[in-house]
Design a protein around this nucleic acid. Structure first.
Lengths: 261, 261
DNA sequence: CGTTATCTTGACCGTCGTCAAACAGGGTGG
DNA sequence: CCACCCTGTTTGACGACGGTCAAGATAACG
């Protein structure tokens, strides 16, 4: 169901002086980028916009205008059914590009919203397109990031379509842990889940009540610990097992991840 | 659950003399393509491979080797959970490129299989990459097709996560009708659904039994007619309404579709 | 300190899953 | 030509997972 804007204020997880550093990290997570490409990217002009929680960056049906990179905070994509129930179709961390989806499509098929208070570096759409056109390496990196997003979509389809509540919830917790770590924003010991249980329910396609019960079950089972929204994972391997989680679909080639063990 | 190969033989829906004609149609469904780009694409060498039903074109974990375009027949992508239950994450019609997903990723995160007997035009991966590098228009068209695939993934997440069985099943029937029509393979009056109810169940994240009951309910409600696997839609608008179907996410800009009405 | 959002828990219900059997159709071989 | 078999479809009975409704508890904010 559509809900009223949450007035809660969130602390930003990270603030970077150079917004493009995190984008760079993201783009090079899957494939190396030539030094010249990195420099060209770093030379792009950008400006920062801050969004309050629940603020729309893109609204379904709009012609997207900005091309943004999430610098601090979290964001998500959502779609609504005709009767108003909501599904969150992806979550985004600092460093994630937000509008490659819409870079070439003239009408947004979904909305993008800030989850926490979020800082977004906006790049000029045309400049980025030109850069991608002139530098195949950058085009390739952008294409790759889009393909990885698509891979995550596929895993979510599997997760929602074929896993029962407990593994489904655990799976998302695992994915966030690994993605946060890959972006250098935490490790597998735990993190602050930046959303309400109602929002989490819209991520996993369950009701808030059942998410609450499932989290309790995971806690009772010794898979997770919770203090407020701070989640810790006393036994990562056990959690990974209940969540049926295998990070292959994240395509994190640079296997620096301790979680891979 | 994993199932044995089906020995049933399917008639191919269409056979085209020129496999690239359908790819062209697909790529230009969303955006026009310059004449020179069309010619360059048409000049690519290709060869045809035939796959029996259930045959794997790509296997999860493999390094993908071919870059294929579906010329005749149907194919699908699937993922498996740890306990062996299957989710079909996308369906593909003649004209659909099958391996742009894997064009730049070195390890397949899912499997691609023939649904019916299928003819696939295989292009040389390197040649296509080179072409995309030299011709921004083609790179853009490929990127666009990938973005549209991603949009369909998002809609499926919504469909499976937030719609109950009847609208969920109806939604997929609508999507196939519109996509078939967009490729010039039928119209909104109906089509031959090229899969078993068990496979359909893996598309919508339900059990075969419940799919059967849902189809019966749709039939009893006057939304669909069935004779074997031939589906006809006596009242398209009513079906579209129960399916909560809006074709925006398919991004068929050339609004030649009568279904849009 | 009151107001609001969020979390938690209980009771009950319904959609969908499970198990099982019967039925229909196509292909094959006797 | 018919018996048989194999898939796939259909139906029923039953059960469970998750949804719904509602109330109370907790925490955050003004």
């Amino acid at each position: 169901m559509i809900r009223a804007p949450a007035p809660t204020r969130w602390e930003l997880t990270v603030i970077h002086k150079d917004p493009l550093a995190l984008l760079m990290r993201k783009l090079t997570t899957h494939v190396p980028l030539a030094q010249s490409d990195r420099e060209a990217l770093a030379a792009l002009p950008w400006s920062i916009r801050t969004f309050e929680p629940q603020a729309y960056l893109v609204r379904e049906g709009d012609m997207p205008t900005i091309c943004g990179v999430l610098v601090a905070g979290f964001a998500f994509r959502q779609k609504l059914t005709g009767d108003g129930s909501r599904q969150i179709v992806s979550l985004h961390l600092p460093g994630d590009p937000l509008d490659f989806q819409n870079l070439y499509l003239d009408e947004a098929d979904h909305s993008v919203q800030a989850l926490t208070r979020a800082e977004v570096a906006t790049l000029d759409r045309k400049l980025l397109q030109d850069l991608a056109q002139a530098r195949p390496g950058i085009a390739r990196a952008i294409f790759l990031a889009t393909l990885v997003d698509a891979s995550i979509f596929r895993e979510w389809i599997l997760n929602i379509g074929r896993r029962s509540a407990m593994p489904r919830v655990a799976h998302v917790l695992c994915e966030l842990a690994v993605r946060l770590e890959a972006q250098g924003l935490g490790d597998h010991s735990g993190y602050d889940l930046p959303m309400t249980q109602e929002q989490f329910a819209d991520v996993v396609g369950l009701t808030p009540v059942h998410v609450n019960r499932t989290l309790k079950a995971l806690e009772d089972g010794g898979y997770i610990d919770r203090h407020k929204r701070k989640f810790t994972f006393p036994d990562w391997e056990a959690l990974r097992d209940v969540g049926d989680f295998n990070q292959r679909y994240l395509h994190l080639k640079m296997q620096e991840s301790a979680l891979a063990a």
